[in-house]
Design a protein around this nucleic acid. Structure first.
Lengths: 255, 255
DNA sequence: CGATATCTTGAGGAATCTCAATACTAGTGG
DNA sequence: CCACTAGTATTGAGATTCCTCAAGATATCG
C-alpha cells in the first residue's frame, strides 16, 4: 500500500465550506475594464462592447487560505477567473490519498469543463480573489460570441497538453526530476507575470508539492535539500527558492 | 534513477515512419454514411446535409501494427478518426523513457488539439484503420458549423477529466490498484462497444500497459499473476483476460 | 514569547525496479 | 506436422528508490 498521507486524511474532518467574504464592489462601474488579469484570461477574447455583457454578470469574491472553492461532485453553478493568489485543484481517493492536478494563478480559468457537476475540488492556497460568473449566464454569452468558445477550446487544448506533460512526470520521472521540473514551471509562470524568473515564491506547502508530484512531504524536502547542497538552489526561508544554477536545474529536470 | 526500459529505448533505432497503405476507396460515394463509428465520433455532431461537406474531404488509411501515425513535434497536417483498432499516444523523455498518455479506439478522435504541431506521438498497436481529415479543411468546417466546435469542446472536457483521473492513478495508486483500474477501464470501453464486459482482449503488450501505468513490464506481469491467483481474473493466453470476480476487481481498483 | 503548524533530518522498511533466466506463443521453413 | 526462431511474457533474486515512522528544528501567529 501507498501512504494515506495525514494531511490528505485531514480533509475528511475539514470544517464545512468556509463562506466566501464577498468584496463589497458589485456597484463598480466596470470591473472588467480595470481587471488586472484581463489580458491573460478568457476575457481577452472579447472586445470592448462585448465585454459589457460580461461585466454585467461578474462578481468578485475573496477566499481565505485553505477555503474550499468548489467540491468534486457538487453542482457547478459558477465559473471563476483567478484574479490574484493560487488555487489548487485536486481529486481524492476514498481513503484520503490526494492528487493535486493543477495550481491555478492569476488569469487562469476555473471551470473550463462546463460540466453540470464539478469534476474536481478546488481550494485556496493563500488568500485568493476570484471573479465569479454564473454558469448559465456565461453559457448564454458563449452562444452569442463564438470567439469565446474558440478561446475555451484553445485553453482546453493547452490544459490537455499540460496534463500529458504531467502524466509523463508522474509516471516516468524520478523525485529529483519531478522537483526540478516543478520549480522550473513555477519560474516560467512567474516570468510570464513579469516577475524575476530566478526567484520563486512557493505559495503552496510541501504537502501541496508532494500531492502534485506524487511524492511524500519528506521526499520533497530531502530533494530540495539535495538540490541546495548541489549548489543549484538557495533557500531564503522555506518558501522562497532562488535558482542559482538554472542550467543545472534544467539538466536535473531532464526534459 | 528510473529505468530506461529497453522497449522504449528501441524507439531511437526505430525504422523510419512506415508508409500507410492507403485503401483504394477514395471514390466511395459517401464514406461517412456507411461509417461504423459515426455515432460515436465527432461526426455525430453533423446532420445529413452538413455531413456531405465532411464526406468530401475525408480519406481512409490503414496502418500495420507498430506503424507511427504521427510524431511529436511534426507539423499537424491531418486529424484522424479511429475506425478500427487501437492507437497509443505517448510522450518520450530524451533518454527514451516513455509515457503512454492514452489508448484510442474506434470512434475516438486523434488531434483534438488543433495545434500546428503534434503535441505527442501516435502509433498503431495492432492493425488500425483511420479516417483522415486535412486539418485546414476541417478548420473551415468548424467555422461553418459551430456545433462541431461545441462538440470538440465537450470532447476536450471529457479528455481533460480522464487525464486528471489518470494523474490520480499515476501519482497515488499502487501497482495493484493501477492494473485493476486499467482492466476495468478496458472492460467499460468494450461494453460501450457492445462487447461482453467480462472478457477483455488486450490489444497492447505488457510494455504498453507498463508505459501507460508508470510501471515496468515485470511489475505488470507479476500484478496480473497475483490477481489471477486471488481468483479475480482468469487468463486465456496472455492477451485475453476474463474478469471472474468483478466486485473484487473494483475493490482492488480502490476508486 | 509561547503554542502550533510546518519543515527538515534520520533510521529502517516496503514496493517497485533491475538484471537474468526460463517459459510460452506465433510464425517459418524443413 | 514438427522443429526452429524470434518475440513476448513470466518468474526469481537482489538492488534501489521512495515511503513510513519518529524526532528535532524552524517558522508563524496570536
Amino acid at each position: 500500500m501507498l501512504m494515506a498521507t495525514p494531511h490528505a486524511a485531514t480533509r475528511a474532518s475539514r470544517a464545512p465550506l468556509v463562506a466566501p467574504r464577498r468584496a463589497a464592489e458589485p456597484a463598480l462601474p466596470d470591473p472588467c475594464r480595470t481587471c488586472a488579469v484581463r489580458a491573460l484570461s478568457v476575457c481577452a477574447a472579447l472586445k470592448g462592447a462585448e465585454m459589457a455583457g460580461l461585466a454585467g454578470i461578474v462578481g468578485r469574491s475573496q477566499y481565505p487560505a485553505g477555503a474550499t472553492i468548489m467540491m468534486e461532485g457538487d453542482p457547478a453553478d459558477h465559473l471563476f477567473n483567478i484574479i490574484e493568489g493560487t488555487v489548487q485543484i485536486y481529486r481524492l481517493l476514498p481513503d484520503g490519498r490526494r492528487q493535486i492536478t493543477g495550481f491555478l494563478m492569476g488569469g487562469d480559468f476555473l471551470g473550463l469543463a462546463l460540466n453540470d457537476t464539478n469534476p474536481y475540488s478546488a481550494e485556496a492556497v493563500g488568500t485568493v480573489s476570484l471573479c465569479r460568473l454564473p454558469r448559465r449566464r456565461f453559457e448564454q454569452l458563449i452562444d452569442q460570441f463564438p470567439q469565446l468558445e474558440r478561446r475555451m477550446l484553445v485553453d482546453a487544448s493547452n490544459e490537455l497538453f499540460a496534463a500529458q506533460e504531467q502524466m509523463l512526470l508522474l509516471g516516468r520521472k524520478t523525485a529529483r526530476e519531478k522537483v526540478a521540473t516543478f520549480l522550473l514551471m513555477l519560474a516560467r509562470r512567474a516570468a510570464r507575470r513579469g516577475k524575476p524568473d530566478d526567484e520563486i515564491v512557493l505559495a503552496m506547502s510541501r504537502a501541496g508539492i508532494g500531492d502534485y508530484l506524487g511524492l511524500t512531504i519528506e521526499t520533497v524536502s530531502r530533494t530540495i535539500t539535495r538540490l541546495r547542497r548541489d549548489g543549484i538552489l538557495a533557500l531564503h526561508g522555506a518558501n522562497r527558492v532562488e535558482i542559482v544554477d538554472r542550467e543545472a536545474l534544467e539538466d536535473a529536470a531532464e526534459g
